[in-house]
Nucleic acid binder design. Sequence first.
DNA 1: TCACTACCTGT
DNA 2: CAGGTAGTG
Length: 393
Amino acid sequence: MSQHALFSESCKAWRSLPCQQSELRLDLTLGCGQTFRWRETADGHWTGVMRGKVWTLTQTEDTLWYYVYSHQINPETENKQKWKEEEEEQLLGKMSKRKTDMKQEEAGLCTVMSEPDNKDEELLMDYFQLGVKLGDLYRHWSTLDPHFKHTASIFTGVRLLHQDPVECLFSFICSSNNHISRIQGMVDRLCQTLGTLLCKLDDVAYHDFPHLQALTDPSVEMNLRDLGFGYRARFLQQSAQVIVSSHDPDWLQSLCSIPYLQARDALRALPGVGLKVADCVCLMSLNKFEALPVDTHVWQIAKRDYNYAAGSNQKTDRVYKEIGDFFRKLWGPYAGWAQSVLFCADLKRFQKLKEEIPALKDKTELKKKMKERTHDRCDEKQKRKKGKKQKRS
DNA sequence: TCACTACCTGT
DNA sequence: CAGGTAGTG
């Protein structure tokens, strides 16, 4: 039985990448609810599945350390359903390289560390989008927005991941009317039930995210309902069905190369996908960095920190788009990245990071400034609101 | 376009 | 109510 790798015990077995903490904070980036696939398996050690491999990551001030596990399958303990195997057979033709690798591993290899592979570094660079200089962006946003500057001074290194579109889409279909911890559990069970087993570490099984094909079977809805997915179970199965039956195999991926709003509309045609989920997929897997998911957190942030008054009581598509436009105007083309910083800072689990920091005085000063800053814009909106109120009464 | 409601489940 | 969506009037 393999174990989770520990940096302190075997640092020679780890590989590394130069990376400042100001460019990436693993705890914030992996724990802020953009992905549901990583767990802190030891102090500062994050283990999860990415690009079909199992990784443990940790970091020091200027270095990102990574450990890639070799797939270690014990067929006797894996209770595969027959239909799943059949489906995998069907898929064999289109199977990605990682699947082929897996077949080899299944032949009985039981190594702990995978062979060093230059591709791993590329995978990490791509997944964490390390080509995007976060420090520069932070500095830029800070010149535009005093509130951002204040928050960003504490929440450094919050970075958007470049996730797989299938994983992103189906994870966020699960996210509707739901909170992070439950979504994590659901995605866990989804992978465990329909995804390929990759390896076991300390008795914890790591599965790949299910292939699209595995989600299309009509039995999936009932399966997932039994696993506590509620009404989302149908959305998952139906969306998979629609994609497979009425689009090209690489349709989802191909949305990368069309404009943001077109991609968002295309996604919205899928069952269980509204504006918010579509924006999540656009931003987190299709490189639409101006996409800005407006959930209740962002909505609160707009009201509380930016005195955004428009439609403060309505959650219509119109208000959704207005709030997005407001932040895009403020932050520019990478607005989605800036949003993720404030979103992260708003999560309950990270509130303790704020404790020892700011003089309350600064905060109130800041609020005053913001009020003046946004006054004109809100004025207009408030008029509209007032008109409505009168109408209602 | 807007307002309202049902939808699953857990806290 | 929770990090929504879809159906109805």
